[in-house]
């Protein structure tokens, strides 16, 4: 029952975040979605990643959104979509149906559970899996983080230089 309520809350908050025209309110709905998602993860037994999702998804990303909206300005555009409404609905319904079709056989997973548990090794600690089995992935994540930071610094300093250049040579 609790999971059902959390799931309904997640979907409602996500829909409100997408439909809301004011950017700041949309960012707040997104933060609430993140908080509920982390609660659901905790209920699923993934406590470690739930904490990170709560701090990063609901905290850091929301701060970033508010910061960006503050700089760019909370402009609300008229709600006419760039592509026809009917086409977007058809695309969404088709993709959701495709996903459901792929997932539906998995809804009766009880019969496969024994198979999985027979084939799978007992799960180790998150630490050993992360550092032992996925060290290459982890290195790539570090490279990605540094790449992202460098791109951000490049973008910001590029804009600054351009502004300075315009001021010096009007």
């Amino acid at each position: 029952m609790v999971n059902f309520l959390i799931g309904a809350g997640i979907l409602a908050c996500a829909l409100l975040a997408v439909r809301e025209n004011r950017l700041l309110i949309a960012a707040l709905w997104l933060a609430l979605t993140s908080a509920l998602v982390s609660f659901l993860m905790y209920r699923l037994g993934a406590a470690d990643v739930a904490v990170i999702e709560l701090s990063v998804g609901a905290g850091l990303v929301t701060v970033l959104f508010v910061f960006a909206i503050n700089i760019a300005g909370d402009v609300s555009l008229d709600p006419h979509a760039p592509i026809p409404q009917l086409l977007s609905w058809v695309a969404v319904i088709l993709s959701v149906l495709l996903l459901a079709w792929m997932v539906l056989p998995a809804l009766q997973l009880e019969q496969y559970l024994e198979l999985f548990s027979a084939a799978g090794e007992p799960g180790g600690m998150l630490r050993s899996v992360l550092w032992g089995e996925r060290s290459a992935d982890l290195l790539m994540q570090m490279v990605l983080i540094f790449g992202g930071v460098l791109a951000l610094v490049g973008l910001i300093s590029g804009g600054k230089q351009e502004k300075d250049g315009e001021e010096n040579h009007p």
Binding site: L15, A17, V18, P79, A81, V92, S95, L99
Partner: peptide, 13 residues
């Protein structure tokens, strides 16, 4: 996933 796709498709901002 459906709501996210819908948001990407209908948003102008």
């Amino acid at each position: 996933l459906g709501i996210g796709l819908y948001g990407v498709l209908i948003s102008r901002n």
